[in-house]
Design a protein around this nucleic acid. Structure first.
Lengths: 228, 228
DNA sequence: ATTAATTTGCGGAAAATTCACGCAAATTAT
DNA sequence: ATAATTTGCGTGAATTTTCCGCAAATTAAT
């Protein structure tokens, strides 16, 4: 049995945002201290002595990126000796989802320190952070096949095609529009409004939809079976 | 940012065993130190400074229960302040699967310290260990619906009904024998041998099966879609 | 002002899968 | 012998998935 344990506990967060223009993106910060100074990395840091893990994530996100988040889920704990060149650090990682308004705000602030990166254009990262992002993306992919997803990533009202594009962006493959609509509609967590989409290009304007949150969260608990 | 972090890092393991007689069981130890002295608890303990998390689990299992394990998967990290009355301890939990021979051996040893408990007859446990067991059971249930399971829990050769009983024990519900066999067979990770089951009671003796490990592990990677 | 291109809304039929059973064969129990 | 138990194999109905067509409403192009 080991005595005098000397291990630090950190949290790191993979925050996903989505817009139909930019696709699925991840929030990164540029480190200004060694090691990996000037490398891009996930927001995160050490956990306070009397702070829950979730609180630590929220605090670090606030401090380092200015955002706060309403969907946060634990991903995995990485603890191999040597993953931080200084000390033994085990990192408990989370992934989060944020709506486009947060996305927009961030794009305005100083981009030298905090920035969104499309999931397919992630730069070289510090530590084992690329592995963590890949794990988070895999988790999000599989999550959306057994739970409704979208409320945390889309505007309050959106054309149906927006949800479809979100699925295609996350899963990184094509989906048949008509089958997708039939399947999603069947679950009943979407409500059609009477409003029409304001067009940006050509095409027939579609009706706007919104999530029925009661059914949405109910299905999130029960689980759905969704083959896309 | 917190300085002088003082948090201990532990691992705990939910080890599942299965026999058709006893059903799905969990390995527990009886604590001989405070707090929760004389309570049943999950095997586990503090992580060594230069030890990986998996190594720590294996070491603690060896020390406390005498077994070693070949299937081990990270479950979740529990870190709420106050879950251990002494210090701040975050516990990275794992779940493992073991074959019946390990099961039998343990049943022979001194049962005052280490014992198997059927999943439906878990006693009052120390700390938040009941929550951890429930989480592990839920995980195993959902795992068996998207990956082949059984190799790590059954004998090398087994009648088909054994796999069926395993599924019923873990999922805690009835399964139609004939549809189950058709579904499982379709995946091709089982091989029928020419040997016949040695009967214990009445009934037609069935053929023995074994896992085709190549296909088994391939499907474990790819994922299966299995509705039972 | 037509015509083309784009996107939405609705649908339908074939193919595949799931579901709910039936029944004979091989063995032990009575 | 006869009953009870368990395996092996199957079949048809119901449901779901998959693949694709086409009209309507709008913008873009000529």
């Amino acid at each position: 049995m080991p005595t005098n344990q000397d291990i630090k506990v950190a949290v790191d967060a993979v925050v996903f945002g989505y817009t139909s223009k930019e696709g699925l993106s991840v929030l990164l910060i540029k480190r200004n201290i060694q090691p990996f100074k000037d490398s891009w990395a996930l927001p995160g840091g050490l956990v306070g002595n009397d702070e829950s893990l979730e609180d630590a994530v929220q605090r670090e996100l606030k401090e380092e990126t200015g955002i706060s988040i309403n969907y946060l889920e634990q991903l995995y704990s990485f603890g191999k000796p040597g993953r931080d060149p200084r000390n033994r650090v085990i990192s408990i990682t989370y992934y989060g989802l944020v709506k486009p308004d947060v996305f927009e705000i961030k794009a305005d602030t100083d981009a030298a320190e905090v920035s969104w990166f499309n999931i397919k254009k992630i730069p070289q990262l510090a530590f084992d952070h690329q592995i963590i992002i890949t794990a988070a993306h895999d988790r999000l992919k599989s999550k959306m096949l057994y739970q409704p997803v979208g409320f945390e990533l889309l505007e309050e009202r959106f054309p149906f095609s927006e949800l479809e594009k979100l699925y295609m962006a996350v899963l990184d493959r094509d989906i048949d529009r008509r089958n997708f609509k039939k399947k999603i509609s069947k679950f009943g967590f979407l409500e059609e409004t009477t409003e029409k989409q304001v067009l940006e290009g050509a095409g027939r304007p579609g009706n706007l939809f919104r999530f029925n949150l009661q059914k949405y969260f109910q299905l999130q608990k029960e689980g759905i079976n969704f083959e896309v």
